[in-house]
Amino acid sequence: MVPLLTTPLPVPHGFTTRLGGVSEGPFASLNLSAATGDDPKRVEENQQRVLATFGHPPVAGLKQVHGTEIRLVEGPGVWEGDGLLTRTPGLLLRVGVADCYPLLLYHPQGAVAALHAGWRGVVGGILPKALALLEGLGLDPKEAHLAIGPGIGGGCYQVGEEVAGVFQQAGLPTFTPDPKAPGKYLLDLEKALILQAKRAGLKEERIYRVGLCTHCEPTLFSHRRDQGKTGHMWGMVMLPR
């Protein structure tokens, strides 16, 4: 079975690593995206290995655009956007990442969501928007559970003054000056996400972190560390059948 990173999120879910697949070279070994330049047949085999761990369910996926649009879906398919939300049991939601954060939400009254959050998604409020969407469905967002998968950590994610300024303006001052690079900042996206979750009323005991930095951890793909020549991982969640 393909190894998955999991959290206490009380529904079937997981975050893949780069282990357990058949891809080679910079894509070794569990690359899940054919858009990277990897052999599509190897990618298909990798995907099937991952889906086998969930019993080969129908899958809803995304053509991600680094935005904040969240699609409410009832069945399998591929949508343009950066988030999926469903109330359909047995439908697996998946997002692809290689430094951005995969976020998984579960509501005890029967809803799950998968979100892709890079810096634009975080500062644009994709997480608060997902919680507002739950509220629009008549579900109390304060009762939601949140799992934050691996992403580039605050000690590794260097940004310029412009990006830091956008976070400051958004009330998310989760950055510090980079002591090794004048005019640059180290941005902590996970800290910003947790701040947003708590502001929305999520209880701290329902916020779960994998706590791994993609840039530091060699068993994870990292777009920045590998200078763009790398694979993609998945974050996945579904309501039990």
Rank of each mutant, 00 (worst) to 15 (best):
T174P: 00
D188T: 00
P10V: 15
G153F: 02
L103F: 06
H56N: 15
E161R: 13
Q169H: 08
L193V: 13
V2Y: 09
G138K: 07
G96V: 00
L104C: 09
Q169E: 13
P40I: 05
E24P: 05
Q109K: 14
A28C: 14
V112I: 13
P3E: 09
E143G: 15
F27L: 09
L84C: 10
L103G: 05
G160R: 06
L212Y: 05
I70K: 12
L103T: 07
P179N: 11
N31C: 13
P12I: 15
A130W: 00
R71E: 15
G228V: 00
A164Q: 14
P173H: 15
V159N: 02
G183H: 11
C216P: 03
G125A: 07
G201P: 06
A164M: 12
V73D: 13
A164V: 07
P240M: 11
D178W: 03
E45K: 07
L193Y: 03
L212D: 11
V112T: 07
L127G: 02
G37I: 07
S222H: 02
L187Y: 02
L19C: 07
P177C: 04
K142P: 14
L239F: 08
L195H: 02
W119N: 07
T6Y: 11
L105H: 04
R209P: 05
D140I: 15
A60Y: 03
M236D: 08
V210F: 01
I126V: 15
L131Q: 01
H107P: 13
V210D: 04
T219K: 05
G165E: 07
F167V: 14
M1R: 12
V2I: 15
V97L: 07
L85P: 14
R94I: 00
G153Q: 00
G160W: 04
T6N: 08
T6M: 09
G75I: 03
L62G: 01
Q64H: 04
L137F: 14
S23F: 10
L92R: 09
G155A: 06
L134M: 04
A197Y: 00
P128F: 04
G67H: 12
